[in-house]
Design a binder for these strands. Structure first.
Lengths: 166, 166
DNA sequence: CTTGGAAAGTCAACAAGGCTGACGTAAATT
DNA sequence: AATTTACGTCAGCCTTGTTGACTTTCCAAG
């Protein structure tokens, strides 16, 4: 309610019907959101989990396994399976930490970066089209609502990623 | 910026950086979106797939299996596994069609409706909080962008659901 | 220096929920 | 009568999540 001068009328957007529409919009939109990368991945031997790992490694090069674990919200066994295939296939490089040698710092290799680019290009293209169709103000609202929907802990992580560089 | 006369400045929202933020916002927000129903379901012997089926049966009582198949975008074998347990457990009722006896019309039973209500109450509560925090205008933008992100076919289905009653 | 515990990796087993392919049955359509 | 459609089901596979148990490596505190 950025505009407080509308009386009771401004609460119409909180009806169960409006909320249900929002829920279904999330459901259908998420399908579109993942459709393009999924199409690329199904030819290769990778899945959505590989895409997510590569995305965040690209985003924060040198991130540790534990870091990635927290961001992705899966168990280390689950992540490890994905990570191992990426490392074995030469898409990700794991370097032993210099200050703390127990840690592994993750980087995309040349080939890894190329696949990541291919995937995120596809995803960004759809995002760009949606943003363009909706306009800047809608995009602002889109992000505001999404941020409000996040769990506090996840939101914290999202905001940290948002600012903090590599 | 409801005013379109801002020159090149109004395109800043289409930078790769802005798009990446939108992508990550979708990722983190979707986790929040499903978190509450998931928590309820993990105690019972059901999963997200059961929730989705119940949601759309609740939303369109009497819908056929084929209809549901199209909306959910899974194979009939996959849906059948879920549907069978719901029918066996007495949460969903399957009635043979009157005009076309090959069709099965799906309805929630009393108990099914109760669980559905419990799940959607949880999901709506989060949605309501997010909507309230973001305000009506942001909600409008949120929905606009999500609709633009959908595949055309899915968007058609979403809009049909949106208007068409039971 | 020893020891406790954190970080990382690995093995095994399992479950949910996708998928394909094949087959059966009943009903509608041609 | 033959074909198509709607639905159900069996069997088997894959991805990606889970627990639990165990090892290795290494930092840091006693």
């Amino acid at each position: 309610m950025s505009d407080p001068g509308h009386g009771g009328e401004s609460l119409l957007f909180l009806t169960d019907e409006q909320l249900r529409k929002g829920i279904e919009a999330m459901f259908f939109a998420y399908r579109g959101f993942t459709a393009d990368p999924d199409r690329i991945l199904e030819n290769l031997d990778y899945g959505r989990a590989h895409h997510r790992a590569m995305h965040f490694i690209h985003r924060s090069p040198g991130t540790t396994v534990n870091n990635l674990l927290n961001i992705l919200g899966v168990t280390k066994q689950s992540l490890n399976r994905v990570l191992r295939t990426l490392i074995d296939d030469g898409l990700v490089e794991s370097r032993i930490g210099k200050v703390d040698k127990r840690e592994r710092h993750l980087f995309l290799t040349e080939r890894g970066a190329e696949l990541e680019r291919q995937l995120s290009d596809a995803q960004r293209a759809r995002m760009r089209a949606a943003y363009r169709a909706a306009g800047p103000q809608a995009v602002q609202g889109f992000r505001t609502v999404l941020e409000s929907m996040m769990d506090p802990e996840l939101k914290r992580q999202y905001l940290t990623l948002k600012e903090g560089g590599a």
